[in-house]
């Protein structure tokens, strides 16, 4: 909104400056008429000049108006373009970082966001985890609403694929749980599960990002999902199907010899 106003402000000087050109050119026909070197002007010249000066004054306003109109359009385009560029240039991480209360571990603790496959139980420096080493198998995140706790080690792998993981404290009222579930069900790249011991009623995770809120009606939940779902993926094009769908906090390792 402020950018077009700025464009309007700078509009005035440009019109004035175009006005100067025809004004300055008043002298030009005169010098032509005298057929004399540029700087010499005599009495004869003045007499002959009278008619051309009037004509050129009359002529001048046409081009000025046209030029002014063109410049006006140009400035309007530039103003709109600036606004549009600004809108389009906001990247997903800028959007995410603009959400009040969001924690960006990619910035604060990038060293904890390793991403190797590791079997067995793993410990994470934040709760719930937002990244780090993880199990080879990811938790299915095709809009799966798990009603029991799931293993961090599988869920972190889902985050790596670009999923948003909604966790809630088991004492969250049922209507709020349902409200959260409605954002997840049928939406791939989303999963949800209860998380005992959570230090907030609700916590949202994407790879490297976390947001804790008190209520399922908090508008920042949708902002978080819009900014980070899919976008936070470290493996572009990775999917959420083909993962494990079992619950329980003990990770399941692949049973192959590899």
């Amino acid at each position: 909104m402020s950018t077009p106003q700025g464009g309007g402000g700078s509009r005035r000087p440009s019109v004035v400056s175009t006005g100067k050109k025809p004004a300055a050119s008043k002298a030009t026909p005169g010098t032509k008429a005298t057929k004399a070197p540029v700087k010499t002007t005599g009495g004869k010249g003045q007499r002959k000049r009278i008619a051309p000066v009037k004509v050129s004054q009359g002529r001048a306003w046409g081009p000025i108006a046209v030029l002014a109109a063109v410049l006006l359009v140009a400035l309007a385009i530039i103003g709109y373009a600036s606004w549009y560029i600004y809108q389009g240039s906001i990247t997903w991480d800028e959007r995410a970082n603009g959400i009040p209360g969001i924690v960006n571990f990619r910035k604060t603790q990038p060293n904890v966001l390793e991403r190797n496959h590791q079997p067995g139980s793993l410990t994470y420096p934040m709760s719930p985890p937002v990244g780090g080493n993880h199990n080879q198998i990811w938790q299915n995140c095709m809009g799966d609403v798990y009603t029991a706790q799931i293993a961090n080690e599988h869920a972190v792998h889902s985050l790596e694929h670009g999923a948003v993981w909604i966790t809630y404290r088991p004492d969250l009222p049922a209507d709020q749980v349902e409200k959260l579930a409605s954002k997840v069900r049928g939406q791939e790249m989303m999963l949800m599960s209860p998380y005992p011991g959570l230090d907030a009623p609700i916590s949202l995770q994407a790879w490297g990002y976390q947001l804790k809120v008190d209520n399922a009606s908090d508008g920042r939940i949708d902002e978080f999902i819009k900014a980070l779902r899919v976008n936070a993926s470290l493996e572009e094009g990775a999917v959420c199907s083909g993962g494990i769908t079992v619950t329980g906090t003990t990770p399941r390792d692949l049973q192959t010899g590899g």
């Binding site: 050109k21 050119s25 032509k32 063109v70 410049l71 140009a74 385009i77 373009a81 549009y84």
Partner: peptide
Amino acid sequence: MGESRRRLTLVAVAALAVGVLLGFGVGWL
């Protein structure tokens, strides 16, 4: 004569520049 020609050139260059900028802006937008 020289000055008027210079002025004409200036106007032509300015018009060309505005035209190119406009065209570029429109094409980009």
